[in-house]
């Protein structure tokens, strides 16, 4: 009888184990479903796929833009940089689809800025040159960020000769202007006062801080070192479809209809 119970118990356990493995496999498969569009990074507001910005600028933009959204609750201004080799590559990224995929802004009050860079070697140093830009405006921000307004702002910031093609200065200046327009026109707030020369000084003197990937890696290692509960927490994050970023920022559910501008260098 004892033998029989043992005989019954193990196959049942094995079946259950197999079932759990199957469920886990399916969950991971669903979680791994890849869209053609890139997923936003954990910081959400800056998605520097072209590696054109310094971590200091990224953190500054995330700080300012997160504040705007979390305090006022509607507008999300999000950046995405792409490294391209040919002009056709710029057009292959559907800005409307990307905006809708990332669900930027609450109540359709989002703004997506796409910056296209090309790799260039200047005196054996690899650098990034802006070759195109695009804006995608959420439905309810269309009256504020009109094509004419956006074009003027881009001329003053992205194409400003005083920034010497330094992506950090161009993008930070652009962000200040976009934020100030929202603060002044929508929320009747005083604009952020800034000086791009001061910002350049700050940028040059900013201490090195490792990017998110390194922190994620250290976090995983420390969890694995915790034994059973570490594995459980890690498993929980994977099952919930979470990224390894501890606090993943998400879009506010907004949508857009193609409004905005797209320009490339002649």
């Amino acid at each position: 009888m004892k033998e029989r119970r043992t005989f019954l118990r193990f196959p049942l356990r094995t079946k259950m184990k197999k079932g759990w493995i199957l469920i886990l496999f399916l969950v991971v498969l669903i979680g791994c479903h890849k869209s053609k569009l890139p997923e936003p990074t954990d910081s959400f507001y800056v998605n520097d796929y072209a590696d054109a910005l310094m971590p200091y600028t990224e953190r500054e933009i995330v700080g300012y833009n997160r504040y705007l959204y979390e305090v006022y609750g509607e507008i999300q201004i999000v950046y995405a940089t792409f490294l391209v080799e040919t002009p056709e590559e710029m057009e292959s990224i559907d800005k409307t689809e990307l905006f809708r995929h990332w669900k930027i802004g609450k109540n359709d009050m989002g703004l997506l800025v796409l910056l296209y860079f090309q790799k260039e070697m200047i005196e054996n140093i690899e650098s990034r040159t802006l070759v195109g830009y695009a804006f995608e405006v959420g439905y309810r921000l269309e009256p504020l960020y009109t094509p004419i307004v956006l074009s003027d702002i881009a001329d003053q910031t992205l194409l400003n000769p005083n920034h010497y093609d330094i992506a950090d200065l161009m993008v930070m200046h652009l962000n200040y202007e976009l934020l100030n327009l929202a603060y002044e026109s929508l929320y009747n707030e005083s604009p952020i006062s800034y000086d791009m020369d001061d910002y350049f000084e700050e940028l040059m003197n900013a201490p090195y801080v490792p990017d998110n990937e390194l922190w994620d890696f250290l976090w995983i290692i420390s969890l694995l070192d915790q034994g059973f509960w570490g594995y459980m927490i890690l498993g929980g994050f994977v099952l919930l479809g979470g990224s390894f970023g501890i606090m993943k920022i998400k879009g506010g559910g907004g949508s857009s209809g193609g409004a905005g501008i797209f320009k490339r260098r002649r």
Binding site: T96, T146, P147, I148, L150, S151, G257, G258, A259, G260, I261, F262
Partner: peptide, 13 residues
């Protein structure tokens, strides 16, 4: 710029 935006919004619509 407005024309570009209009054409883009029309295309999406």
């Amino acid at each position: 710029d407005t024309i570009y935006s209009m054409e883009s919004t029309l295309s999406v619509a």
